[in-house]
Amino acid sequence: MLRKRFKSTIGIYGYLVPTIIGLILFNAGAIVASFVLSFYKYDVITPAKWIGLDNYRWVLNSKLFWTAVNNTFKFAAGYIPLSVFLALGLAILVNERIKGVGLFRTIFYLPVVTSMVGVSMVFAWLFNPYYGLVNYVLGLFKITGPAWLSSPQWAMPAVILVSVWKTVGYYMVIYLAALQNISPELYEAAQIDGANRWAQIRHITIPVVSSTTFFVVIMCTMSSLKIFEQVYVMTQGGPANSTVTVNLLIYRNAFEYLRMGRATSMAYFLFAAIMIVTCIQFLGQRWWVHYE
């Protein structure tokens, strides 16, 4: 009996070993190690030196860090509402029973599977101030397009547009799944009561998918705070630091200047920000999220 139990315990660990090792080494362990490291001065080559809260103090006093925080918020302020609004709109459209709708689903989802680096390259060309397609199209409407990626005012909006274009299909599919779970009787009842399409969307669709909206907002928030590749490839944080993000600073400090301690303390600020924002979102959800 005892032997059998022992054997089955071993069995369970057998199934979980690779996962647990991964969890300890690359997740839980790394999280702790990162925290410890944030109190050290460490450049990989010379031994680490304890410096207490100096890294955190340095980060808080760094003007560039606050610029990066500001930029990251700007990105989030554009990216999150645009993504939610567009994704829901697209989902409602491709949920209609009309011809060729499958093709549109495919098209809207297409950018999601491509690599962000490739996409960033393509958009760097599209946003070219003189020969880019974007400004050409604007020109057709007699609008003089801005210099986009080389303009401090317009670089961030351009980065936001690229990011929305790249990811909106993903959120659309999530919304689509939620829409397909709504029972048609709800709409039929509303129609009998004389509600038009807009009223149906406002009073049925939006409240019913609010739990999905909550999920999408959380996902968008997290990816906003982690934004890296777009700015790394398209702008390198410029012009005039207008697209420097926290994640870009972490990368530079860790792997260009080899200031590992400083970088981990920034990563912890970011981590704390994600936790706080997510908590607020969870607390706030009872005001607007309806669960069935």
Partner: peptide
């Protein structure tokens, strides 16, 4: 939930 940046450096 943990951002990759936190685990990246270690």
């Amino acid at each position: 939930m943990v951002p990759t940046q936190v685990t990246l450096i270690p």
